[in-house]
Design a protein around this nucleic acid. Structure first.
Lengths: 125, 125
DNA sequence: CATACTAGTTTCTCTTTGGTAACCGGTTAC
DNA sequence: GTAACCGGTTACCAAAGAGAAACTAGTATG
């Protein structure tokens, strides 16, 4: 859309809008852990996921970072948090319907990572 | 693939591989500027792009960061750098064929950013 | 009573990231 | 000569990111 000519004028406005949209995305999804957490929860919609389970299964994440990232994801309505009256207290985290809209992003990143690794291995031969 | 049962065992192995692939991607593409730069260059394949032009058109990036990020992208073969014997010296940056493989990633991020902004605006009404 | 579990929080520290501004060499236009 | 342009680099500094470890509170188990 709005790609009427190729001299760059209308295209440039379009491009800057695209970069702004990407900046919006990166502000919410950027950083070391957020997309990892979202992907993890998306893959486990059939399981009940607790804090400690996530910490054990997402490689390298500390309790501090996990806690902080979960809060931010909850504020942006990408995940839900539900404390249970069990003993000891357990908290169930899950991806929201809105959080599932991020799936295409993590999907492309997973695919790119796989082909990138293949390329690196190929280049070492 | 490998989704033989739903008790979590085979699925989990698959998931951890996915997270590793995403970690690989984020190591190369993560950070504040790399995907922005790649998207910018992808959109301008029909134009000659110099350092100063990028700095002017990628909102908020400093010469220091641009220089640093371009080096890292070049090392990973995602962009090419070609110094021209003009006066003053100009340097032409372009996306490589391999760099174009990142297009699906930036595309999903652009799309998600657009719908996310729409959602935020909607929620303010 | 000691230990262990969940779900975090707090403190301390180090590293990374990132911005500003000055600067460099070379060239060209006024 | 001086100012301006290109393509950066360097120095300085502040803020954020991130890890390790200790710690809290409540419950339960041995």
């Amino acid at each position: 859309m709005a790609k009427i000519n190729d001299n760059g004028v209308l295209r440039e406005a379009n491009c800057s809008e695209e970069l702004m949209a990407m900046r919006d995305s990166l502000d919410v999804l950027g950083g070391k852990w957020k997309l990892m957490i979202l992907r993890f929860l998306t893959n486990r919609t059939h399981q009940v996921i607790h804090f400690k389970k996530m910490q054990r299964e997402i490689d390298g994440i500390s309790a501090k970072m996990l806690s902080k990232e979960l809060k931010e994801l909850e504020i942006n309505l990408l995940i839900s948090r539900a404390a249970q009256d069990t003993k000891p207290v357990t908290v169930v985290y899950a991806i929201t319907e809105y959080g599932k809209s991020v799936l295409p992003v993590t999907e492309t990143l997973v695919n790119w990572g796989i082909t990138h690794r293949e390329k690196i291995i190929e280049s070492l031969k």
